[in-house]
């Protein structure tokens, strides 16, 4: 893997999130190999610990990929993941990490190109943060 490609961990919900990742290959598209996708049953399964663990293990960025608002298969209140995301961002800020390295994204079901566009622009944003701060974002 080239040094310029940021390591991104994508936590994808089992439903619209993962379906858009799977649709990438079906649509004949691809995304960089530095993107690692971790399937979770729902984004509400995630908490600040798992998000921070990804950064601890060397992720340059973390993307939380879930269903569009109102389309959750479990009718889960999106406030849960928004709250965990906010807590993780506050901790990242304390640790001197740019909070933009954590994004919460909602994609339409099965939209591979949407996911590819989002993840490549996220990698580019992290690349810019890295070049702005010597030694990494």
């Amino acid at each position: 893997m080239s040094k310029s490609e940021a390591n991104v961990v994508v936590f994808a919900c089992n439903w619209d999130g993962l379906s858009s990742v799977e649709a990438v290959a079906q649509a004949g598209l691809s995304y960089p190999a530095s993107v690692k996708v971790v399937r979770v049953s729902c984004l509400s399964r995630l908490h600040q610990g798992l998000i921070l663990k990804a950064f601890e293990l060397g992720a340059d960025g973390v993307m939380l990929l879930g269903c569009e608002p109102g389309k959750c298969q479990f009718d889960t209140d999106p406030a849960l993941i928004t709250q965990e995301c906010e807590k993780a961002r506050k901790l990242m800020r304390l640790l001197g990490l740019k909070e933009e390295r954590l994004v919460l994204t909602h994609v339409p079901r099965g939209d591979g190109s949407h996911f590819v566009g989002r993840v490549t622009s996220f990698i580019a944003e992290i690349g810019q943060m890295r070049s702005a701060v010597p030694g990494g974002a």
């Binding site: 600040q48 610990g49 921070l52 950064f55 601890e56 901790l91 640790l95």
Partner: peptide, 10 residues
């Protein structure tokens, strides 16, 4: 969820 360990290690 291991959040404290992650913070301490970072």
């Amino acid at each position: 969820g291991g959040a404290l360990q992650a913070v301490m290690h970072m």
